[in-house]
Amino acid sequence: MKKPLSFGLGALILTAALAGCGGSPGTATSTPPAAATSSAATTSASATASSPAAAAGADMNVSASSAGQIVVDSKGMSLYFFTKDVKDSGTSACTEACLTAWPIFTTTSDAPTVEGVTGTVGTIASPDGKKHVTLNGMPLYYYAKDKAPGDVTGQGVGGVWYLVSPAGEMIK
């Protein structure tokens, strides 16, 4: 009897921690999900891939989804905003454990390329020297549970994670 109860309680605590992913200001980076590999970027709006990765140039495209037109990386993986981030602050509110579930979208380029994205693209510095890509002054993230292009399983998680429109607005 104790094992099922303790397992359920542990699962509940882990779920709550990953869903909220609050945190203090400050940028940190994380490696995208284990299957991620870096490869040449494509500029097709319907790019395909098996997992997110920081593509050279951080190319972003627009793709159709169940939530409408959304911003994706060059491999078709969905990108998200975190409502606890402060626009134009130059920092990320997602730190430590949050980054396990929500890896940052990085680039090696000073001028990430886009196709179909009309919002203002930029970068902020992460503590390890990587460039965290922003759209309209808000940092962009992957969701670790999105496993294939077109997955949008992070939409609305914890009431604080939302897909991004081509104009750089949260899709609620």
Rank of each mutant, 00 (worst) to 15 (best):
S66N: 09
A67M: 09
A67S: 13
G68Q: 13
G68S: 13
Q69G: 03
Q69R: 09
Q69N: 10
I70Q: 04
V71Y: 03
V72A: 04
V72C: 10
V72R: 09
D73R: 02
K75E: 13
K75S: 13
G76N: 01
M77P: 09
M77D: 12
M77V: 10
S78Y: 06
S78I: 04
L79Q: 00
L79R: 00
L79P: 01
L79G: 06
Y80D: 05
Y80C: 08
Y80V: 11
Y80F: 01
Y80R: 03
F81H: 02
F82S: 08
K84P: 10
K84G: 14
K84H: 15
V86D: 09
V86E: 13
K87C: 00
D88V: 00
D88A: 01
S89H: 09
S89D: 11
G90T: 11
G90Q: 02
A93S: 07
T95G: 13
T95M: 09
T95I: 15
E96F: 06
A97C: 12
A97H: 14
C98G: 06
C98T: 04
L99C: 11
L99D: 11
L99Y: 15
L99K: 06
T100S: 10
W102Q: 00
P103M: 15
I104D: 15
I104V: 15
I104M: 04
I104E: 11
T106F: 01
T106I: 04
T106A: 14
T106E: 10
T106G: 14
T107L: 08
T107G: 12
S109E: 03
S109R: 15
D110M: 15
A111P: 06
P112M: 09
T113K: 14
T113P: 06
V114P: 08
V114I: 14
G116H: 02
G116N: 04
V117D: 06
T118A: 02
T118C: 04
T120H: 04
V121L: 03
G122E: 08
T123D: 08
I124K: 01
A125E: 11
K131Y: 13
K131F: 10
H132C: 01
V133M: 01
L135V: 10
L135Y: 04
N136C: 07
N136R: 04
N136A: 08
G137L: 05
M138H: 07
P139D: 02
L140G: 12
L140A: 11
Y141P: 08
Y142L: 01
Y143N: 03
A144D: 08
K145D: 15
D146G: 06
K147E: 06
A148M: 05
P149D: 13
P149E: 14
P149A: 14
G150P: 15
D151N: 14
D151M: 07
D151Q: 05
V152I: 07
T153H: 08
T153A: 10
Q155D: 00
Q155M: 00
Q155K: 01
Q155R: 00
V157E: 08
G159A: 13
G159Q: 07
V160C: 09
V160G: 05
W161K: 00
W161H: 01
Y162V: 10
Y162K: 12
